[in-house]
Nucleic acid binder design. Structure first.
Length: 481
RNA sequence: GGCGGCAUAGCCAAGUGGCUAAGGCAGCGGUCUGCAAAACCGUUAUUCUCCGGUUCAAAUCCGGAUGCCGCCUCCA
């Protein structure tokens, strides 16, 4: 099976051929650490986490690098505003980032360099570009000259002349071309700075990724990823400066994920509709967000709204219930393990979907198909099927795991909801259990009217009851607020 | 002004030339139940925004119309 990857630079799916057979070098632009992360950051993290997981499951030896931008204008602004050292701003939000990512089940990349750890390498790259005539120094500010690089605009598909005509570029008299971008910003009062042969200052934004990606992954490397908005100018500029310096190709495959809208509106700080990951997690299990994103193709925009999230939440529970039933069906049974051809067939289709530019939405459909298949077998209550159930369940878990799903257990999935709900409603579990006991008594004496009254009373409080062979259990009705 | 994307059932959403148009949610029918609920099973688009065209064959390709959206400025 050949993996195909959509390459932004060509605008089409291409066969994936790694630089070194069996290995994949993956670089993804991380976050600028000046605030808590929102669910848009989560999409990028989850998309590339899934790509990382899948490539590894295919047997590739993957080196995954994701950076932290820990020096930039926004960080400095925050440090002034809150009157704390800029280093502390970075430290604080790196920690916040890790809390969020760990909660979301996003695997740690192999390397997570910070911009400030590689200032020396950036200075060397700027010197190189000045030497080669691709950069010029004006009063300590060093700019990259876009006119000196023939292929400028290749990635984003914008001819130079038209971009200049675009007129939305801030005109800076110092620049030779309005599109020239800063490699190095001259030292200013109250800002961090590093000494360099061309004058003290701090690096521009794009230079760090050029340095860190090639340093850890070589040149060229396989996949460079990030949000769609980074295509221009960030990645275009990274590409220009790197290729101008090395004279070689920088990246083979450019992969960009689409954006997140909220209620059909762009999520942005100015509109004030950003949803932080930590706020989302107060309401839903982290895998709800993952399943939501993976239900959409990574390149499409997605619309976040309460209705859809509740639907996804229900769907996620379905997968957990299937696993629970499959496991219960095996308890106390002895059987010989054997493979189950239908499950293998589904696993094959799953891989084909993932090989087709990481089509997680299609891949998910096979997981649900397998879920249904398992349920059918369990439902038959046929002892001889136990071995098949066991092997189908193993495949089911393996596929889900490749997408980062079913990493929790059902009890934890449900208990989170219960705790949240009870806290909000202002009563505790003992109240619910007391009411359930009363109802059990009423039912024993066949006083069904009273039993139903208790059930209705709890239902009004968002608690639903389930009379199971193991006794009466309770759950939270979804979307009760 | 320039560049690009999207339009598929009540909702979300995959599918880019040809088997019965995935999957999820909701709905409906059933199993179960004191009745329910949950869970599970079954079922739900002769049709893919509209109009032309290419083709033996199009949701899929081409042209046009309409609507929605993104990027071009920091942004995942």
């Amino acid at each position: 099976m050949a993996l195909k990857v959509y390459n932004t630079i060509s605008g089409r799916k291409e066969d994936f051929v790694p630089v070194t057979e069996g290995k994949v070098k993956l670089y993804v632009c991380g976050v600028t650490v000046y605030d808590h992360c929102h669910i848009g950051h989560a999409r990028s993290a989850i998309v590339f986490d899934t790509i990382y997981r899948y490539l590894r499951s295919k047997g590739f030896d993957v080196t995954y690098v994701r950076n932290f931008t820990d020096i930039d204008d926004k960080i400095i602004r925050k440090s002034h505003a809150e009157n704390i050292p800029w280093q502390e701003v970075g430290q604080k939000y790196i920690q916040s980032f890790y809390e969020d990512m760990d909660a979301l089940g996003v695997l740690r990349p192999d390397h997570e360099p910070r911009a400030t750890q590689h200032i020396g390498d950036m200075i060397a790259l700027v010197e190189n570009l000045i030497e080669k005539g691709h950069a010029y120094n004006i009063g300590g500010d060093v700019y990259f000259s876009v006119d000196s690089f023939r292929n400028y605009g290749q990635l984003s598909g914008r001819p130079l002349e038209e971009m200049v005509a675009g007129a939305r570029v801030e005109v800076d008299e110092k620049k030779k071309n309005p599109l020239d971008f800063a490699l190095w910003k001259a030292s200013k009062e109250g800002e961090p700075s590093w000494d360099a042969s061309f004058g003290a200052g701090r690096p521009g934004w794009h230079i760090e990724c050029s340095v860190m990606s090639t340093l850890y992954l070589g040149n060229p490397f396989d996949i460079h990823g990030g949000g769609k908005d980074l295509v221009f100018p960030h990645h275009e500029n990274e590409k220009a400066q790197t290729e101008a310096a090395t004279g070689e190709k920088f990246v083979n495959y450019w992969v960009h994920n689409g954006f997140v809208n909220i209620d059909r509106e762009k999520m942005s700080k100015s509109i004030g509709n950003t949803l932080l990951i930590r706020d989302f997690l107060k309401e839903y299990h982290p895998e709800v967000l993952r399943l939501f994103y993976l239900s959409n193709h990574y390149r499409s925009p997605v619309d976040y709204n309460g209705q859809t999230i509740d639907d996804v939440n229900t769907a996620l529970h379905r997968l957990y219930y299937t696993r629970e039933r499959a496991q219960e069906a095996q308890i106390g049974k002895t059987f010989e393990v054997r493979s189950y051809p239908q499950a293998e067939e589904i696993a094959k289709k799953f891989a084909e979907a993932m090989d087709d530019d990481f089509n997680t939405a299609a891949a998910l459909s096979y997981i649900f198909e397998l879920s249904k298949e398992i349920n059918r077998m369990v439902e038959k209550k046929d002892e001889s099927a136990t071995a098949l159930i066991a092997s189908a369940e193993a495949v089911f878990e393996s596929l889900a795991g490749t997408l980062g799903l079913l990493g929790d257990n059902l009890e934890s999935l449900e208990s989170r909801e219960k705790i949240r709900h009870l806290t909000r409603m202002g009563f505790d579990a003992s109240f619910v259990e007391g009411a359930i006991n009363d109802r059990v008594e009423a039912r024993k004496s066949r006083n069904f009217q009273k039993a139903d009254e208790i059930r209705d009373m709890l239902a009004e409080k968002g608690i639903m009851l389930l009379d199971t062979p193991k006794g009466t259990q309770w759950r939270i009705k979804s979307s009760v607020s």
